[in-house]
């Protein structure tokens, strides 16, 4: 197995031997490295089966990684609004530009508002044209269908005050609808909370899948190495010694699988970067899509590796005890 035959001829005859403590710990360390490498080599003996197992593991690990990243991104995206609630006043379409202008000036004098911005119908059309793929259709219409919008920033950010302000602005005759952005944010946050919870549940299920896949794969190799285990136990192998190669197999499955998963997440995110940034621009946000950062990446890989080892541990426990020389 590991000990390389050497060419020099050994001295003959019996010698008393004791394995010293230092020797033992060095041997232990060397044994671990050897077993780890052998386990890795063993994976390459059946490349197709190994790759398929790794692909399943990678997908199972990538899904939660991807979900958490998306949730994280949306949370980050929404942070801007939490501190600055806004109310959008959509004016009736028949309101003249001049009247809209005047209304915005009147609102500036309103004590409850800290800022007012008018987006008149022409400006709205220009912005719409530059961002929307439907811009071409607008030219088919005789007149501009968009209403003028007055964006106001409330001074008081308390929920009750905001609602009262919204009702007050809604009652202005020219205003067709007063929309409090905060409602949308609150809903978004509720959705996010749900998405996060869902991600955890899904992660738990997928972690279980990883355990089962690794466990099952290792149990099959365990059966194929039955003779070796029996002989090793007969000549004095401990349970730990017999179990070690299988734990390292689990380790490699987990590590390589999660590395693949990491790549999968990054590639998927790269694919949606373009549209996501465009979306952010629409909201005039300086949001940039975040991939898995170093910490999250390490967590993903550590979790994957840990699950691999645990899978190896669980699948060998009872079975190894059952394989006893008789």
């Amino acid at each position: 197995m590991a000990i390389k035959p050497q060419e020099k001829v050994a001295p003959r005859g019996a010698q008393k031997h004791r394995v010293g403590h230092l020797d033992r710990s060095r041997g232990w360390f060397r044994h671990h490295i050897e077993v780890a490498l052998q386990a890795l080599v063993r994976l390459t003996v059946t490349p197709v089966a190994t790759l398929m197992t790794l692909a399943v593991l990678a997908i199972a690990l990538a899904l939660p990684g991807f979900l958490f990243t998306v949730v994280n991104n949306i949370q980050q995206f929404s942070i801007g609004w939490d501190t600055n609630p806004r109310i959008m006043l959509y004016l009736n379409t028949e309101v003249e530009d001049a009247r809209a202008e005047q209304l915005s000036l009147e609102l500036m004098l309103h004590g409850g508002l800290s800022g007012v911005e008018l987006i008149d119908r022409d400006q709205g059309l220009r912005e719409f044209s530059s961002y929307s793929e439907f811009a071409g259709m607008l030219s088919l219409l005789d007149s501009n269908p968009l209403p003028a919008v007055i964006l106001v920033l409330p001074a008081d950010h308390q929920a009750a005050a905001l609602q009262q302000l919204q009702a007050e602005l809604q009652s202005i005759p020219e205003v067709s609808e007063a929309v409090l952005d905060l409602e949308w944010i609150q809903r978004l946050n509720a959705y996010l909370l749900m998405a996060e919870r869902f991600s955890w549940v899904l992660s738990g299920l997928l972690a279980l899948a990883v355990l089962l896949v690794v466990g099952n794969t290792i149990r099959m190799t365990l059966e194929s190495r039955r003779d070796e285990i029996l002989v090793a136990k007969l000549v004095g192998a401990t349970d730990a010694w017999v179990r070690r190669p299988f734990l390292y197999s689990g380790f490699w499955y987990g590590l390589i699988g999660s590395l693949f998963a990491f790549v999968l997440v990054q590639v998927s995110l790269y694919l949606i970067t373009g549209p996501a940034n465009q979306l952010a621009q629409l909201y005039s946000s300086n949001f940039v899509l975040q991939g898995l950062d170093l910490t999250s990446g390490l967590i993903l890989i550590a979790t994957g590796t840990g699950l691999g080892v645990l899978g190896g541990f669980l699948s060998t426990g009872r079975h190894l005890r059952a394989i006893e020389p008789s």
Binding site: M1, A2, I3, K4, P5, Q6, V9, A10, P11, R12, G13, H17, V19, D23, R24, R26, G27, W28, R30, H31, V231, A232, V235, G236, A237, W241
Partner: peptide, 19 residues
């Protein structure tokens, strides 16, 4: 195999196996 299990040094083990 018995020497590996007992944690012998590889060169020492090789000598013993040959003997």
């Amino acid at each position: 195999l018995p020497l590996q299990i007992a944690g012998y040094d590889p060169s020492d083990a090789a000598r013993r196996v040959r003997a």
